[in-house]
Design a binder for these strands. Structure first.
Lengths: 222, 222, 222, 222
DNA sequence: AATGAATGAGCCTTCATTCAT
DNA sequence: GATGAATGAAGGCTCATTCAT
């Protein structure tokens, strides 16, 4: 209080636990929730555990989120959507070969989402969508359809320029995405049994086959 | 039981079905459980419903399976292994171009497993493996590694003959499998939100890109 | 089992606790529920307490009733409806003066319902209907409208025969019922503060004023 | 506060409302609480809502009332007693026929209390008295017994003058009050299920039967 | 072997109450 | 005096599991 007893820095920090917390709370909670959702899935995650991991009481969760489902949506919104928006940004500004663009988009996804702990979310959605259709719908509308649009644009760009063969674009999208999704699915499910995938190598192979398979007739693969 | 005590007619009548039942019970139960697990996932499947669908009482389930988890294991064990064995059989007997062989294997998987109700099992494994590591391990050992061996053999065959480019075989396997797995994953999860995939077209595109990407450079895709 | 060891009657009774219970359970549960609903109201009655009073676990309640509300409906159905049906029966068979009929109906209600522990139900409905509209609706449809029909018939009978003055029948019904309802309301609410009502005397006064007020003008009340 | 320390202009401006608020607060809070208690009952009324309707924070409620129950008591105390005092006043000043007096008292009650939003209070007391015996007692002592005294005086006046038949006065009181109470009870409970009562007509019928039933034998009703 | 009544731990959600600011 | 973030004790309901019949 006085100059004689200057509180330590941390003490100051602790002096305003409430007001300081107030702003940080929601993201503290979603962070805890993300960990547990990824770890156990939606249904198996207990709000008690989320609260405990965030260091608050169970009731506090309900000050910030109306329900378990709302909490989950917030996790997605906060974790995935910004990364997607950034990708859209990069796409819009890109100029150059479509093959490089495509590779960049996919690699970017891996670096921003798939390869981080956020990768657990797509896996989670896949696992739980059957029992929580509303969540699936939410994710579809907010993430999947936007992501597909991005890829569609990239493919059409390449086909229009004659760089890619004129394939069925919509099927292509799914085929392109699949190995990426499988990678996170793998990392959050069967990886447990020791059969590791080496992501860089796996991605290289995917891009190799993919680009090779997309490019208009030509000599050798690069 | 003996000639001395001939059971009443009705008793005889009931005796056959009952003893037949007795042996058939476990698979009647796992069949019912498969349907429900595929439909709702592990956690959301109620044993009441399994019992009801199998036409027995809930208690009866516990005469055959120690727990819900044990039932789940039995479902996996019983459902998928026989289908895989059949695929191996078909492979062993094949002679011809590797590209055609590969295409045949993948298409066969779709026709025998992925496209049937058995397709729910891989999805199930993926969804629940986190909470049931033992099952994941089991599935890996019994199904995945065997399936990969099959593909590895096919790829090596093509590379050895010069038909395919000399790619990293193990990564290739995963990349090849991924779109197929995603197909069943999709069919049992996000399909709910209306974004349909047209399997034949999707598979065509996959094969197109894949074979094109695998083949040693020249001319057009077959 | 044998003549040598004749089990005591109670012992026999206890020998089949489950099968015996099976049939008796629902009414054991509604009996316990009635007591508590009357004692504490609908919202304040905890299912734990109902179960405890019935000597079963909380889960058992849900074997017989889908929800708290369903339990309550069962209480009404079992407690009130039969008494009402009996009253309708008596009415149909009655021949004689309408004043006597009316008095009989009202007195019968008191003896069968209002004056018994079932009297708590109308009080309950009144207290809770605001917050549980579905319950109110149920009670209205099943009990109130039937009761009013009965009274309407009795009044019209008296008016038709010239015994009663030609009053507005529907308003009459409410006015006639009101003192009876107030009696139970009183008995289950303010009576607590010691201000007793003497039901027989109260009812006599009510009937006195009522019949006097209904009869076509002449001499003295019967 | 003093001329020595003239507060800044804005401070003055805020000072009035604040000090005025300070005194008005309790009744602002009870007013908000009355509305909600009447609307939803005691248990279903959330203090958040009371605070919100009063335009204060939830914590503020606890500055003025120790608990939800204390708030409830204050609501009753403040709402009903003044209205009763007014009724006593009107009675004391009346001179004329007892039948007219009685009719006037009852009609006055309807116009001053029953038909206004204060009518919710008797309903509230009835509904909650079981769970709040203390309030029931309070209401009985402060309201009911005073109201009964008023009616007792009016009836005795009529009997003494030979206008009314010599009935049991105490029972009469209850019988007379009952339809009025039921009217408010109805308006705040079962009215929900669509069975409307037309108060004027209902009251007319009540008075008709009542006065007819009370008057000493003779020809027709007045 | 088969039944199904019974259990009780557990989960999501609500809300009166407290207290640091 | 006023705030509102935080709490924690319930309560309704579910469901895997048990066990007497």
């Amino acid at each position: 209080m006085s100059a004689q007893n200057p509180p330590a820095a941390e003490s100051i920090a602790e002096k305003r636990p409430r007001s300081r917390r107030k702003e940080a709370r929601p993201s503290e909670l979603t962070a805890a929730a993300l960990e547990l959702f990824v770890e156990k899935g939606f249904a198996a995650t207990r709000l008690d555990d989320v609260a405990a991991r965030a260091g608050v009481s169970k009731g506090t969760l309900y000050l910030y989120f109306d329900s378990k489902e709302a909490l989950f949506k917030a996790v997605v919104e906060e974790g995935i959507v910004p990364a997607l928006a950034a990708a859209e940004q990069r796409f819009a500004e890109y100029e150059g070969a479509s093959a490089v663009l495509l590779r960049g988009l996919l690699l970017g996804w891996w670096q921003q989402i798939g390869g981080t702990h956020l990768g657990g979310i797509p896996k989670l959605i896949i696992s739980e969508s059957r029992n929580f259709p509303e969540i699936a719908q939410f994710y579809h509308d907010r993430v999947i359809s936007r992501g597909r649009s991005l890829l569609r644009a990239a493919l059409q760009r390449g086909i229009a320029s004659g760089e890619f063969r004129p394939l069925d674009v919509d099927s292509c999208i799914d085929v392109i995405i699949a190995p990426l999704l499988m990678l996170v699915v793998w990392r959050y499910s069967l990886c447990i049994c020791g059969n590791d995938i080496d992501p860089p190598r796996y991605l290289d192979t995917h891009f190799d086959i993919l680009i090779n398979g997309l490019l208009s007739g030509r000599t050798e693969t690069p």
